[in-house]
């Protein structure tokens, strides 16, 4: 390894923000491992129906497709928010962040209504090992998205009140990593849990 890692190289301005981003990237990678363990648990238990319903009987793909569209579009609008930020257009940044938050909230809302439907039908997490693993995995992702939403709302408030400082832009970039990462986890979710379950 020649020389110091560029993320830690001292001197120029803004280096603390790039160190922070790198640290957050390391956190995200550890979060990957968390999700991987939940995915493996689901993979092992995906056919342990215990006489309960199978994946094919309870998953409704049109709803999942709609959820996917919300999350995917929100990733795109977050990207547009970072572009607006780089131009220094605060109003535009706030607008894109707000649109992203609405899309994210729609995603969480759809997911909650799916959970509600399953529980009301008697197919809650206690029904079978398959459903326990399913609820744990999907709800962990949903909880992450909800935390990201809370973070986004706080950030919108801070930027609206205090303006677009260097600290704020660093926070926007950190949340951007988190948000795009959650979209990647969702790709694995809709493919290996929902689609593969219905196949």
């Amino acid at each position: 390894m020649s020389g110091e890692p560029s993320n830690v190289r001292a001197g120029a301005e803004g280096d603390t923000s790039s160190i922070r981003l790198f640290g957050f990237w390391v956190y995200i990678m550890s979060d990957c491992v968390l999700f991987a363990t939940l995915f493996v648990t689901f993979a092992v238990l995906h056919a342990s129906y215990a006489g309960g319903p199978t994946a094919k009987q309870i998953f409704e793909l049109p709803g999942v497709l709609l959820e996917t569209m919300f999350l995917l579009t929100s990733s795109f609008t977050y990207g547009l928010a970072t572009l607006a930020m780089r131009r220094g257009a605060r109003g535009e940044l706030l607008a894109w962040l707000a649109i992203t938050a609405v899309l994210g909230a729609s995603f969480v809302g759809l997911e909650l209504s799916e959970f509600r439907r399953l529980v009301l039908e008697g197919n809650g997490p206690q029904r079978s090992a398959f459903l326990s693993a399913f609820f744990t995995l999907v709800a962990t992702h949903g909880l992450h998205v909800s935390c990201g939403l809370l973070w986004m709302i706080v950030l919108i408030g801070q930027i609206a009140r205090k303006g677009l400082s260097r600290t704020m832009s660093s926070r926007v970039m950190t949340l951007s990593l988190f948000w795009h990462f959650l979209d990647i986890v969702w790709i694995c979710l809709f493919t290996f849990v929902y689609l593969a379950g219905v196949v």
Binding site: S6, D15, I19, F76, R86, S169
Partner: peptide
């Protein structure tokens, strides 16, 4: 606000985001 201030995180453009989205 120059690009350097965002460290090694993002170098996206409108074109790359749109292409990625499609």
């Amino acid at each position: 606000m120059n690009e350097k201030s965002f460290g090694g995180a993002a170098h996206g453009s409108y074109r790359s985001y749109t292409l990625g989205f499609i």
